[in-house]
Structure formats: C-alpha cells, structure tokens
Design a protein around this nucleic acid. Structure first.
Lengths: 262, 262
DNA sequence: TTTTTACAAGTAAGCACTTACTTACCAGAA
DNA sequence: TTCTGGTAAGTAAGTGCTTACTTGTAAAAA
C-alpha cells in the first residue's frame, strides 16, 4: 500500500471541515488537488486528452482555471499525474498473492477463475481508469507503456510460469504457454472491454463476473467439444489436424530452447 | 519525409503532366476526395479525432485547407464519411460465405479457425481502420454503434446459431452459446489488439496469424487440460460445478425458445 | 465561354496558460 | 480576548496562439 505523496501533510487541525468542495468554498491544497485529479480522470476517460479542455476540468471541479495550473504546471502534467498514480497503485502483486493457495494445491480452475475475477472486478469498479488506459494506449503515451510493462506483461509472464509448471506436472497439455495465457487473458479482457466500452447495455450477453470467470475457465481447461468428439479429434489425424500437431511439436521444441527467458 | 506518398494512380491522360497530386496540381474531384479520406483516416487513427487538425490533413494530402472543406462541409462530416464508407464496405457476409463449406461438413475446427483468420487478417492489413474504430468506440460515436450492430453483433449471432446447431448435433457441449462465442472472439480480437495497439513490437508473443487461429481453435474445442485431468474434472460434480450447470440448464431452455434460425 | 479545382488570406471562436489582484485562514503579539 | 501580518487558496480578465471554417480570386479543364 504505497500511500505516495498526496495530501497527508497539511492536516486540518481539529477545525470544522467547512467544505466538501463540490462547489465554491475553500479547501486544503491536497484535497483540492485530489479532487481535480478525480474530475480530470473522469473527463479524460470520457472525451480523451485533447477532447477535454482545462476550462471544463476547472468548471467541474468548482474552481477557476488558474487553480488547475496552480497544482499542475501543464495539462500534460495533470494527465501524467493520473496515469502515474494509478499505474503504480495497481500492484498486481496482491492479486497474484491471493492465488498462492490455489496454485500450491494445483487447483487450476481456482487459479484461472480467480485471476479472471480479479481482472473483471478491477475493470468494473474502475471503469474510468480502464477507459483512460485505452485512450493512452491508442495515443501511445509513454505512461501506458509503463503500465503495460508493470502489470499486463508481468501478469502474462507470471501466468506462463504457472502454466509451464503444470505442464511439467502433466496436468496441462504441451502447448506454448504464452499462447494459452494470451487466449485466457484475451477472453477475459475482451469481455471487460465489451462491457465497458463496446456494448455497455450488454445487449448480447449479460452475466455476472463470477459466472463469466468460471465459464471462461471451464472453456480454457476443457474446451467446448463433447468428450466423444474431443477424443476422436485428438487421436484421429485428419489432414488439417495433422498439420496442426506438426506445428505444435516444433513449437514445443522451440519453447524448450527459449526457456532461458524468465 | 512528410512528402505525401499517396496519389500514385490517377493516370494523367496523355495530357500536360503538370500534376502528380503530391503538391499543387489538379485532380478530378472524386479522386481528390478519396485521397483526403485516406489521409484523414491515417491521421485520425494515429492521433484521434480532436487530436488531428484539418490543417494537418490538408498538408499531408498536398492541398489547402479550403479544399478539405470543399469536399466535406465539416470535420465531423469527414470523420463520418470514413467510418460510414468502411463500416458498410466490411460486409462480413463474404467471410461467413467462405465458411459455408466447412459448416455443412460440421468441421468445427475449420469454421472457428477460418473465422479467426478472417478477423486477424482483416485487422492486420487495415490497421488504421482498426485503430480508428477503437477511437470511435471510446468516443461513443454513433457510427461505431452502427459498425457494432452490422458487423460484430451479426458475427456473434451467426456464430451462436452455428454453435447451437452443433450442440443439438451433440458435437459441442451444452453451454450458453454466446459465452462460447465471446470467449472465442475474445481470444482472437484481443490478440489483434495486442498486435496493433498494446504491443506492436510483439515482445511477448510473435506468431503468424494462421498459427494463432489454429491454436485458439484448438484451445476452444479441446481445452488445455490433459485428458486424464479433463475427464476427472468433467465427471466429478463439485459444489461449484453444480451451481454452474443449473444456470446452464435454464439458459438452454431459454435458448430453445429463441431458436428462429434454421 | 462556363464549370470546376484550386489557394492565399482571411475571421471568429476556442485553446492552454498567465497576470494582477482579492479573500480566507491562522499563529502569535498586544 | 482581540488585533495583525504572513501566506495559501482563490479568481477575473487577460495573452498570444491555434482552430475550424469562409471568402474572393485565379486559372486549368470542358
């Protein structure tokens, strides 16, 4: 829990709070700063960086434009402050730690399902930040790169490590672990994107996060083919299937060579 | 390097050369219009709508700003023209038609793999449009809504129909078809998004589209668990599983009522 | 000739950011 | 307690620059 910088300092000494800041009135510097950040995040996430004016931010925060520039030297600085603060906050370590037990038990369903639920819940209860991230990704902002490195990439590698272990234990099939990781993160993250951005009315599919996580896990682990078909399909080498398994074998070999990558 | 590339085509018909279109010179109205659209799409996709100026567009197209407004009454009109043109062009009917053979044969692997390849190739060779779509989705532009209705939603419903058929034929397990469709489209589309936007250097995973399509299909149909594990997990009814299947049954009933597609 | 394609040179509005000034708050001297 | 001065929180009204969009005019094509 890094309660970095921000506020803390100028403690209001036992005085009447006086002011919720929603409009007009005076506020302690730190609080006002936080409020501006909150408002700015909402607006940036809705309209994008260049689609949001500093005047709008000031207006919604109930202060004059000059106040915004008292706290942040430039508009870009304000943007960076948001991404910076949030990117560092989301640690991803907590999420992984919560899965520790399931991992040691080798309970794959719990591991994958827990991971998916973590991601889905995070996005659901911080929609603004998720949208902001998409904006900054499209914009190619360097702070998105940072977020990608610190969170997504880390998670993918972590998941890969677990998958490799389980493959060696014989519980998972011998496929390129990163492909499996991408498939699962893909189902989950895409589902979030649809819920948040593409189809917030959920006109196509409207299920609670827990169930989505379970179903995706079920699909990842066991597939959607019936067992009869599954067995047939795996053992029987049709033309196309043969091609596939050849590819897969060469991949497995390549993967072993590449093992140095941590 | 800012010299606009574009222009090549429009054969000057044995006339005074005069014009390569790159700067100055005359062009037939329709061609110039198309060129402006092409340039605008590239810029909008890179910097977003409000991040792109009409001056930049004119400059890159090798004309004056006034020309842009001769062809498009407003900047918004230009934006709409792009989305409109492309959204209507991508028919999704072709893609589905190409899968017809595989569908009649009941070759699930070919159907899913073909679909994934279609999507992956489309995004790869029209990266600008994919990025533009993301921008317009975030912006909540009405033309994205249209694209979603006409393409993504249609594809999802189509896929659902196929999945239902195959479930009734006993080839696929009895899960909510839309969940399966979302899972598969999710793997595929997320993979595209990573390649195009999040990690264009492909630092985590760099495989050709054909292989990605095959591997995702394999995962969807058969899962990643080994068969021993798979059998155990499917037959053994844990508490969680029971709850899940109850939900699934009610869904299946609802699905039967809805069945209009033949 | 007329029509179409083009652009230089605008204009008014909007933008990020600044300046010069006012107000609220609180510690400590009277 | 009551003054009082230092300072942080606040603003109205700019600054100069950029933006989307226009106008008037020239010239190539038909």
């Amino acid at each position: 829990m890094s309660k970095s910088i921000e506020t803390q300092k100028n403690a209001p000494p036992g005085r009447a709070p006086r002011n919720d800041g929603s409009s007009g009135g005076r506020m302690a510097g730190g609080e006002r700063r936080q409020q501006i950040v909150r408002v700015a995040m909402r607006l940036f996430s809705q309209r994008g960086f260049s689609g949001t004016t500093t005047r709008e931010i000031a207006q919604e925060a109930g202060v004059s434009e000059a106040m915004v520039f008292k706290h942040f030297a430039t508009k870009e600085d304000l943007y960076a402050a948001i991404l910076d603060h949030k990117a560092c906050a989301g640690d991803m370590g907590d999420a992984c730690a919560a899965l520790g037990g399931a991992m040691e038990r080798g309970d794959d369903a719990a591991v994958f399902s827990g991971l998916a639920q973590g991601v889905l819940h995070f996005h659901e209860h911080d929609t603004d930040f998720a949208r902001l991230l998409m904006h900054s990704a499209l914009q190619g902002h360097e702070l998105f790169q940072m977020f990608w490195e610190r969170n997504v990439r880390q998670m993918a590698r972590f998941l890969c490590g677990y998958i490799r272990e389980r493959q060696q234990a014989g519980a998972l099939r011998d496929m390129e672990p990163m492909v499996i990781a991408r498939a699962f993160i893909g189902m989950t993250l895409y589902h979030s994107l649809v819920n948040i951005i593409f189809d917030p009315q959920r006109s196509l599919l409207d299920i609670p996060n827990e169930r989505a996580a379970q179903e995706f896990t079920e699909i990842l682990l066991h597939g959607v083919a019936t067992q009869a078909t599954a067995g047939k399909s795996i053992t029987k080498p049709s033309g196309q299937k043969k091609g596939l398994s050849t590819v897969r074998q060469s991949v497995a070999i390549a993967a072993k060579k590449k093992k140095s990558r941590s």
